[in-house]
Design a protein around this nucleic acid. Structure first.
Lengths: 183, 183
DNA sequence: CAAACATAGCTAGGATGCTTAGCAATAAGG
DNA sequence: CCTTATTGCTAAGCATCCTAGCTATGTTTG
């Protein structure tokens, strides 16, 4: 089971190692504690994903596929390939591997004989839920305990962070924005 | 240039599609808006990374290497392989590719003739900074505008999220914690 | 109705990026 | 000095993806 660490120090906010504000020596602004924390969460999320994958003996793509299947209940290979943004040929191999490990089964489609339906195995879903629970459960509990005021502050902030990313990823605005977000 | 999308709907907090609280149909708790936003940030961060990689004509591993080099100023292949958590042989190939594209150069080490020093090219750093700036600059600006009270709320929250991940990733505690974080 | 077109998912061969094993050169330790 | 350890590279092999192509099936058109 190959689990590769690949933490990028720069593509998530943070911009450097220091907790101060201003600019670091390569010209990136420092976000202080908040930016560093966001960056750390991104890195830890990736680590956790690999941790869960190791527990279920699957590679990152296969784990992602399992998670999509769990959420959707079942999917055809074409639907899965669209969600994973990989070719249908690669999806066939993903499903092959997952079938071999007993994580999913292929069933004929109810009304279209060209199609296959990929269904997660009940035991596999239970194992995946158990592996995911520490983080998802932890964050759910944490957010339950927030006061309405605190929740509003955090949600407003995170909404703006999402907006920054979306602007940065938009085809034309990204070039024009250049550092001035819509917020 | 191969940029693979691989968004996992389950390994970051969120636990499902609905904004309500409670449990979804596969047993994962719902975190409401905050959990979904965190999940979205994780996904968008990955998308942004691929976006930046495309702009610089590098794959995810090579981009991560570039970012480590930018932050550190320069690194030996062994140091780089440790940070990337890949073998030194793979690191050699990463550096080969980056050298070919003009993103880095190899120099002899100043005092140890076994060693090589990998140095990012100035023009490459400038291009990378430019590509990263929309998000890093945006988040830096956003956090500058926070009131001290709001900042404290957000930092406390994010600290706890980080803690949840770290507990989940710790070798022995993760099994014992089981959903009761240290917070 | 039949023909043309579209869709589904799989197979085969190839490309890419990683691994392990091994090596020559060099550095460190006794 | 000799032994051990470190460095980073080469070569072969493996895992996972891609494109091209195919058969079976479903939909649209005349």
């Amino acid at each position: 089971m190959d689990q590769r660490r690949n933490s990028a120090p720069g593509s998530a906010p943070g911009g450097g190692d220091s907790g101060e504000t201003g600019f670091n020596d390569i010209g990136l602004p420092r976000s202080g504690g908040v930016g560093n924390q966001l960056r750390k969460i991104v890195t830890l999320s990736r680590d956790f994903e690999r941790h869960v994958g190791a527990a279920l003996a699957v590679n990152p793509t296969d784990l992602s596929a399992m998670e999509h299947l769990m959420v959707a209940g079942s999917l055809t290979p074409s639907e899965l390939s669209r969600r994973l943004d990989i070719s249908t040929a690669a999806t066939t191999l993903v499903v092959d591997r997952l079938v071999t490990l007993g994580h999913v089964q292929r069933h004929p489609h109810a009304s279209d004989r060209r199609k296959v339906v990929v269904v997660p195995a009940v035991a596999s879903v239970a194992r995946a839920v158990e592996a995911l629970m520490p983080v998802i459960g932890g964050v759910a509990a944490l957010t339950q305990e927030l006061s309405p005021e605190d929740r509003a502050v955090i949600e407003a902030f995170l909404t703006q962070v999402v907006e920054i990313y979306e602007v940065a990823l938009a085809p034309d605005e990204a070039l024009d924005a250049g550092g001035q977000p819509a917020a």
